[in-house]
Simulated scan of single mutants.
Amino acid sequence: MAEKLRIVLAATPAYREMVFAPEVVARLEALGEVVVLDDPGDADALRAALPGTDVLITSWGAAPLTADVLDRADRLTLIAHSASSVKHFVTDEVFRRGLRLTQAGQAMALPVAEVSLAFTLSMLHRIQRFDHAMHAGAWRDDVPPQHGLTASRIGVVGASRTGVEYIRMVVALGAEVVVYDPYLTDDRARELGVRRTDLDDLLRTSRVVALHAPTLPETHHMIGARELALMPDGAALVNTARSWLVDMSALLNELRSGRLDAALDVFDEEPLPADSPFRGLPNVLLMPHQAAATVECYFEMGEITTDEIERHASGRPLQYELTEAALTRMG
């Protein structure tokens, strides 16, 4: 590499410790000067740091990259987001100025898929219902029939990064899998060992429906009262994606009836209020938006970010580059 880079890392001390292992920091320092900003949301500090900067590493709570901020970026060529979604801070100015953009969301795909699989198995075996009954003092309780994964059709809404990891797991364990995703091709479906179908058919015929679709205008409340009514008695909904996808009021009505089960890691209001009716339902398994929160996932985010910067510095293609067109299809 002919010239050393100036890299600005905008992340809190706690985030840096969680994501950037010492050996990864050493790799960044080998690329050039690393300037640290402790408050990623401080636009004034970012503006002051950008002149002469080649690479900007962003994190949770990043300041929006407006024209006013980017006017100071006289050498900037790459924005490397060390987490997943960039929609809260990336503006049209980024692409208008020809800046390249990458992110580390791939690190989250595997742990979230693992939680989705754990949710799926719990739903099929009614673990959440038995757990609730035993905590209440019962030995057994009246629950819907239990089922095995290999005897069940699993419906996946969205062949996203996480959706694909989840599909690979449930297919490997012997489940029949159907997928609804308007961007999934027949060739790709065959490669994954699944069958494409429409949303209504998926809902009518699946024992567990796992949501892995992105947050887009067209996916808002894609699972509403009509769609939930299509699901057969005893079926279950698994959501480790975003509550944006589900009409949560309609879901609550179905869950209160006891007709469906659900496993949820995401909610309209977070943290979930202490008096939320979801908390008291025996047919609901809850997690506090922590599906991706493994030690390994966080360190992999730092590794991916550093890999991408090294690729950029050596003129190699980025592995996880985001184009403006691709961003419109991502949550």
Rank of each mutant, 00 (worst) to 15 (best):
L202W: 08
T306L: 06
V156E: 02
L76V: 01
D265M: 11
D44Y: 00
G98W: 09
G224P: 11
A326N: 11
L230T: 12
I309L: 05
P13N: 13
V179F: 07
K4P: 10
A10H: 05
D131V: 11
G174P: 11
P277I: 07
A63R: 08
E321R: 00
V178L: 02
E321A: 09
L124M: 07
S59N: 08
P288R: 10
V94F: 05
G193D: 07
D200W: 00
D131W: 01
K4R: 14
T215N: 09
H81M: 07
L117N: 04
A213E: 15
T306M: 02
F267N: 07
F267I: 14
D71V: 03
P273I: 06
H212T: 02
G258N: 11
A30V: 08
L245V: 14
G105E: 09
D42M: 04
Y298L: 13
L211R: 03
V69S: 02
E324F: 01
L228C: 04
E227H: 04
Q319M: 13
A118V: 03
A83P: 02
V177M: 08
M134I: 15
A326W: 11
S243L: 09
S206H: 05
K87D: 10
R161W: 00
A325P: 07
E310C: 01
R75V: 03
G41E: 05
C297L: 01
G234A: 07
F299V: 13
G224V: 07
D39S: 12
T240V: 15
E308W: 06
P288F: 04
A136Y: 05
A63E: 09
V156L: 15
I7G: 09
G137W: 12
L272N: 06
T328N: 03
E165F: 00
I167N: 03
M123R: 02
L124Q: 07
L251R: 04
Q319S: 14
T215S: 10
P144Y: 06
P277H: 03
I167M: 10
V25R: 11
E29I: 04
E269Q: 15
L50G: 04
A109W: 02
A213R: 13
P273D: 14
G148W: 00
I309Y: 08
A172E: 00
V35D: 13
E227Q: 15
L216I: 10
S152C: 07
D38E: 15
P145C: 00
D39M: 00
D307S: 04
H135A: 12
G105C: 06
A313H: 11
G280D: 08
G98A: 05
R168S: 13
P111I: 01
R161K: 07
V284I: 08
P273V: 10
G61T: 10
Q103T: 08
T91G: 08
A109I: 01
A21F: 06
V164H: 01
A274H: 11
G41D: 03
A159T: 05
L251V: 05
T323D: 06
V295T: 12
A213C: 14
T120K: 01
V86F: 04
A291Y: 09
D39A: 14
L245N: 10
E270S: 11
P217H: 01
G52F: 05
A73I: 03
R242A: 13
A30S: 12
R195T: 14
A236M: 05
R204W: 06
V208L: 04
D68E: 15
A62T: 13
T102L: 02
L184C: 09
S314C: 00
